[in-house]
């Protein structure tokens, strides 16, 4: 759906790799997760909780919440507001999120 401008300095220089549905995407440290995913022609990035309709990023500025995705195992994150980090694992979320598995039990005080 989107491509990098060919005269952009970002076409070379430092690279970061993230994994979208296990497929690598090579991107820049300044990209948001949503921007990086849009480079890969994702089609959709989530399905809605109500009717399971496909959706994709709409506003890219944190206001529409259409870009909610599973980032490193935690769902419902605004992908347009989260900067990429090397090795990140990103997935579409499918309707209502599941509870994250690992639970750090808080210490009782």
């Amino acid at each position: 759906m989107f491509r990098r401008h060919d005269k952009s300095s970002q076409a070379n220089g430092d690279n970061v790799t993230i994994y979208f549905e296990d497929a690598p995407i090579i991107c820049k440290p300044t990209d948001s997760v949503a921007a990086a995913v849009l480079l890969s022609d994702p089609g959709y990035t989530r399905r809605t909780p109500v009717t399971k309709a496909p959706r994709a990023p709409y506003c890219m500025m944190g206001t529409c919440f259409e870009c909610l995705m599973d980032i490193n195992g935690v769902e419902n994150q605004q992908a347009c507001m989260v900067p990429v980090r090397d090795g990140m694992k990103v997935r579409r979320q499918n309707g209502v999120p599941v509870l994250p598995e690992d639970s750090k039990e808080p210490e009782n005080d």
Binding site: P100, K104, P106
Partner: peptide, 11 residues
């Protein structure tokens, strides 16, 4: 979160 620690990442 003391009752259900898994809820700590829920928004």
């Amino acid at each position: 979160v003391q009752s259900f620690p898994q809820l700590s990442t829920v928004r």
